[in-house]
Amino acid sequence: MRDPAGAVIGLDFDGTLSPIVPDPAQAVIHPEAPAVLAELGAHVLAVAVVTGRPAATALELGPGLADVEGLVVLGHYGFERWEDGRISAPPPPPGVPRAEAELQLLLGTLDLKGVVIEDKGRAVAVHTRRSPDPEGALAVLREPLAKLAEKHDLVIEPGRMVLELRPPGMDKGHALSLFLAEKAARSVMFVGDDLGDLAAFDAVRASGLPGVTVCSGSAEVTALAERADIVVDGPQGVVALLRELGSAFSRS
Rank of each mutant, 00 (worst) to 15 (best):
K120P: 05
S88A: 13
P31F: 09
F201R: 04
K120Y: 10
I230W: 06
P235F: 01
P63D: 01
T213H: 12
A25F: 06
S250K: 13
A25G: 02
S250W: 02
I230D: 05
L198C: 02
E83S: 15
P235A: 02
D193K: 09
R130T: 15
A219Q: 13
L176A: 12
D153G: 13
P4W: 11
E80T: 04
L180Q: 05
L138C: 06
Q104R: 15
A7R: 15
A5I: 01
A27E: 10
S88T: 15
E80H: 07
E164G: 09
L110H: 10
A99H: 05
M189S: 14
G15Q: 00
T16G: 06
H76T: 14
A38T: 09
P90K: 04
L106F: 12
V8Q: 12
R129L: 07
P93N: 05
V50K: 06
H127A: 02
G75R: 00
A240R: 14
V214T: 02
E118K: 07
E157G: 01
L241A: 06
F179R: 10
A66C: 07
D119N: 15
L59N: 03
T109G: 08
A223W: 01
I29G: 01
R122T: 09
L163Y: 04
R142S: 11
D23Y: 12
P90E: 15
K151H: 14
L209W: 08
A48N: 09
L106S: 11
P19Y: 01
E118V: 08
V49M: 01
A199K: 08
K120S: 05
L17S: 07
P54T: 03
A123K: 02
A240L: 02
I230F: 10
D84L: 13
V8R: 03
L176F: 10
P97A: 13
K120G: 00
G95D: 00
R53Q: 03
I20Y: 03
A25W: 06
G246D: 03
V155D: 01
R98W: 06
L17H: 04
A181G: 05
G95C: 05
L103K: 02
V162Q: 03
L242S: 10
L37K: 01
V214H: 12
D153S: 15
L106R: 04
L178F: 00
V96P: 04
I87W: 09
